[in-house]
């Protein structure tokens, strides 16, 4: 019996606390598998954010640090500068990266920090119970936008990949999704490529992963996948924005 699929060593045995059907779990697996397959688990250091994935330090089997809200890219900068040969990644939600941590992610990209950022965009604040995020879509309801996000009042959702792609040393920027198996496979490819580019020392790498939040979207897990496909992808196109010449 040949094993086609089994749990990666990149994840610990600890069951996750995520809500049923939350795709954080899938993204964790893609990161962990990528590290294992690239032989990087032994020298990886991950940085967990504040948000639903705040406990990621218990789920990844490599060394981990838990950073203050929004500061993971700065924390990762410190780690990578101390251990330049390590594989450093930040795993951040949209509140963490696109709201309070905007300066940190922009400047980590500007400096071309040789780290990989996994940016999980589920268009809402999950851990704190469903508030509006910078990525919340216009008209999308949230506990702090009860009638739906009003663009005149609270602006338009921010497209971080497009924005960061304008930064010279942000050498690999790709947006992917995990709403179905083909996209999950493509997402894994992008994440693995990001780590490869990091280890080549070419510059800052980021993969934005569109993700669901069944609980705070008020949908079943399966409906949430559908909602993501029909509402998020039109506004957040699945696409590669930057790839270094050396890797093309």
């Amino acid at each position: 019996m040949a094993v086609v699929f089994e749990k990666t060593k990149g994840l610990t045995d600890k069951p996750t606390h995520y809500c049923p059907g939350c795709t954080h779990g899938i993204i964790h697996r893609l990161v962990a598998e990528s590290l294992e397959e690239l032989g990087l688990l032994d020298k990886a250091v991950g940085v967990a954010p504040v948000g639903c994935s705040v406990f990621a330090y218990d789920y990844f089997s490599c060394d981990m640090q838990e950073a203050a809200h929004g500061r993971a890219p700065a924390c990762a900068t410190g780690i990578k500068r101390v251990h330049p040969d390590s594989a450093v990644f930040t795993y951040q939600g949209d509140g963490d990266l696109a709201s309070i941590g905007t300066a940190e992610i922009v400047h980590a990209a500007m400096r071309g920090e040789k780290i990989t950022t996994i940016f999980v965009n589920n268009a809402i604040y999950g851990m704190t119970g469903g508030q509006m995020a910078p990525t919340t879509l216009v008209g999308q309801k949230a506990t702090t936008a009860p009638l739906g996000r009003d663009a005149d009042h609270a602006g338009m959702p921010i497209r971080m990949s497009e924005m960061l792609a304008t930064i010279p040393k942000a050498v690999f920027i790709e947006r992917v999704s995990v709403h179905d198996v083909p996209n999950i496979i493509k997402a894994k490819k992008a994440i693995k490529k990001a780590f490869e580019i990091q280890m080549k020392g070419l510059g800052f790498t980021m993969v934005e992963v569109l993700s669901t939040c069944p609980t705070n979207w008020g949908k079943t897990p399966i409906e949430a996948l559908k909602w993501l496909k029909e509402n998020m992808i039109p506004y957040y196109p699945i696409q590669n924005f930057r790839t270094p010449e050396e890797v093309k």
Partner: peptide, 19 residues
């Protein structure tokens, strides 16, 4: 490293000290 802010700087210290 000159950080983008003192907030970023102290969090770089956190990472480096933790490393």
């Amino acid at each position: 490293l000159q950080a983008e802010s003192e907030v970023a700087a102290i969090n770089m210290v956190y990472g480096a000290a933790g490393a």
